[in-house]
Design a protein around this nucleic acid. Structure first.
Lengths: 247, 247
DNA sequence: TGTACATCAGTGAACGCGCGTTCACTGATGTAC
DNA sequence: TGTACATCAGTGAACGCGCGTTCACTGATGTAC
């Protein structure tokens, strides 16, 4: 298979290293808190130690670099996440331990998460779509793994996918937070970690309780609903009387 | 209360309108898919119909405009989200109806969501922190409402906050997706909506089943764990034999 | 192993452009009498 | 209600700067014999 697209994929050794230097320079800036779409090509080449014009030997433009970042990081991450799912399973507390392994991986390899968790809605439509596709692959792999291992045997694959979507969404949000904790208040961080673990537990508890095709009865009881209506009218009236500011 | 900060808050009528024109111009670009941090001050003033220098009559720099966007949109959204929570409670399917009201609101007022759902990890550290604080306020309000209405009376306030954090996180991710559906495949969109509703149901089912201080037994059964370990070792060996590429 | 040569990767100078910011200015707006 | 005046909001020209992109070039790298 031989690509013929604009900049060929750098066949020589020197070429490959420089290309990687460009990619790393971009990831470094992003790890330092910068947005990809606010990076300039000149500052990237400066950081990579090459002259601006050399950029074009490797990428048509910044968009192409952006897509490369998404694909590279995505591939690395998918492999690693799958690895995490297969670590420390001997424990009695799978959920907590999995999250801790995940956190450790985020701490050790912040680069790869910066794209997935930071640029999800930021970049160009093209980049956003690429990230969406990549996350879809994460979800599919995780669902397939859980399905194959019969961890939650009562769920259909469709439901399982949806649960995984929720989980991965939550984990990426968590990763985004974790990336912003360099040092800082350790006690507070530990509390946050426990919160995330609790969120995961709640999701998996809900998923375990789910039955596909069950009649649509509400989780929030009828009694609670009745109480709700009653309170609403009270509050509504109190509000209307107290503060008449309407939009 | 009289502020004395760099650009005074535009005391005259004309001033207020121009300031709002600047804010709207920024939101318009962001609604059209642009990242705040990739907007230039000149294109904003162009869109707002003023000369570049006039920008400084209202904002010290782009950072200050960014914070204004976060605060303005945050305040509007909190009011509206609280409103949504108090709508259509007579229904038997609160969760689904609430989500549909939410979706409708996103469709009708995309501007306000573009900041909260898009710029969460993108912008400058200052802006990111402001958004985090704003989302914290969302969470607190939602938790207080649910607590006051005794919708899930068994949960402690701390747990309730954490559930709300999960829910709001999920809803903002959903809003981000919805913003990218202009027209498009209606059937697919309906399916996505049902997926989000399912995610919400799963969260609330898990939350309902949660008992604070309960012993830490795993959701995933011991039987499943045993099967897991067994499968892992099988797959692990198969993998090692088949594809020897290690990182 | 050594040499000749084609291809590839990086150079440095140059360009036109839009950017943020400054300034003295002018006309509009709100107020005090 | 009318007029005088201070303040405020918007103007237009100018600046220096970093940007993306182009080009002909040169030295490095890999290969074919």
């Amino acid at each position: 298979v031989q690509k013929k697209k604009s900049p060929v994929p750098a066949p020589t050794e020197r070429g490959r290293r420089t290309r990687q230097a460009i990619v790393n320079a971009a990831l470094d800036f992003m790890s330092a808190g910068k947005n990809f779409s606010s990076l300039s090509m000149r500052e990237i080449t400066r950081q990579a130690g090459i002259v601006p014009a050399a950029f074009y030997r490797h990428f048509k433009d910044m968009d192409e670099l952006g897509l490369t970042l998404v694909n590279d990081c995505g591939e690395t991450l998918r492999l690693q996440l799958r690895g995490i799912r297969q670590t420390r399973v001997s424990s009695k507390d799978i959920i907590r331990d999995s999250f801790l392994v995940f956190k450790q991986y985020v701490d050790e390899h912040p680069k790869y998460f910066v794209v997935a968790s930071g640029e999800r809605h930021g970049g160009s439509p093209v980049m956003r779509e690429a990230i969406r596709a990549e996350i879809g692959r994460f979800v599919e792999e995780m669902a397939q793994d859980i399905h194959a291992l019969k961890l939650m045997p009562d769920l259909s694959l469709a439901t399982l996918r949806n649960v995984c979507d929720l989980v991965i969404n939550m984990m990426l949000a968590a990763a985004g937070e974790i990336l912003d904790w360099p040092g800082g208040d350790k006690r507070l961080q530990r509390n946050k970690v426990e919160s995330y673990v609790q969120q995961l537990r709640i999701i998996f508890m809900g998923a375990s309780a789910w039955r596909d095709g069950k009649p649509e009865s509400d989780v929030i009881s009828d009694k609670a609903t009745a109480r709700l209506s009653e309170e609403i009218s009270k509050i509504g009236h109190a509000r209307a009387a107290a503060s008449p500011r309407a939009p």
